[in-house]
């Protein structure tokens, strides 16, 4: 073979093709737009890369969604159960809070009085719709006796009708067979309080000359020490006086609603407690503290002075 028998043109072409990359290494790459010969290639590559990226991210997203659904459902069920448990706890805690507030009021009342009181819970109500009585969870074993007064912080509830070992039946003041000695607080007129229906009681056997007006407060007389003197019973809503006769009667709205009773106090010993004095100093059951001593009603009979 002849060493010198080669095509010079082919040799120059090869050198030029090989030398091009070496030339570009030495050139600077200026930031900015790509050179004109590179732009078509850049555009094609960019478009294909964008399409590929969109496709792969979509596939990844869909796949992960289906894979996560299993976990999401499990989390959802768990969170739902937790939510229900928390709601039930919240209901119980709310009930405890309300009971706490109620019991705090009862305790405060018990601590600030001279009376010997026994707290009791109402466990049952009267079977008959025409009678009003409750059953409490204290009986003769806890010191209860018949006719002992039963009260709440607001006012008079009734008195003990019968006792068993660990429970007692209490006739509520709204029962028609109940009878409690009572006074009109303003004029000290005296009568007998008995029930009429579930929302009304009446003060009977008031003397015709007694001064009783709508809005007057009716309180206990403290007779026999079954109730403390001056303890609220209710407010007069109407007065009935016949054209002839020696007595009159007043209809009274009781301060205590039997249907709302949950805890009560049994008065084991009234201790000579007198809420008339406490009214003077502005301290006593909530109803008493709101009572204003109203001026005597316009009548021909002068108001009786307090003893």
């Amino acid at each position: 073979m002849n060493f010198f028998a080669f095509d010079i043109r082919k040799l120059l072409i090869v050198i030029a093709v090989v030398a091009l990359p070496l030339l570009s290494i030495n050139m600077k790459r200026n930031p900015g737009e790509a050179p004109w010969y590179q732009r078509p290639f850049t555009w094609i590559v960019a478009a294909s890369q964008g399409a590929s990226s969109s496709f792969t991210s979509g596939v990844r997203g869909t796949t992960s969604m289906y894979l996560n659904l299993v976990g999401i459902r499990r989390d959802n069920l768990r969170l739902g159960r937790e939510n229900e448990e928390l709601r039930a706890q919240l209901g119980g805690l709310t009930e405890l809070k309300l009971e706490n507030e109620r019991l705090n009021k009862l305790l405060e009342f018990k601590q600030t009085t001279r009376m010997q009181l026994l707290a009791a819970k109402v466990i049952a109500r009267d079977l008959s719709p025409d009678h009003e009585s409750i059953r409490i969870n204290r009986g003769y074993r806890q010191g209860l006796r018949k006719l002992m007064g039963v009260i709440t912080v607001q006012g008079v509830v009734g008195y003990v009708l019968s006792t068993e070992m660990d429970s007692a039946q209490v006739v509520v003041i709204t029962d028609r067979s109940s009878a409690i000695d009572a006074l009109v607080q303003r004029t000290r007129a005296r009568g007998l309080m008995s029930g009429k229906d579930s929302s009304t009681i009446r003060l009977r056997y008031l003397e015709r000359a007694d001064d009783v007006a709508v809005g007057d407060s009716i309180v206990t007389s403290g007779l026999k020490g079954l109730f403390p003197k001056g303890f609220p019973i209710g407010t007069v809503t109407s007065v009935r006086k016949t054209d002839f006769g020696i007595s009159q009667e007043a209809f009274v709205e009781p301060v205590v609603r039997p249907s709302n009773l949950e805890e009560v106090f049994v008065v084991l010993d009234s201790g000579g407690e007198d809420y008339t004095e406490k009214l003077q100093t502005g301290f006593g059951p909530p109803l008493l503290s709101k009572i204003n001593t109203a001026p005597a009603a316009a009548s021909n009979v002068p108001a009786k002075s307090k003893p």
Binding site: D126, S128, H131, E132, S133, Q169
Partner: peptide
């Protein structure tokens, strides 16, 4: 039985 659960005589 009923009378123990009511104030009815």
């Amino acid at each position: 039985s009923i009378s123990s659960a009511t104030a009815m005589p």
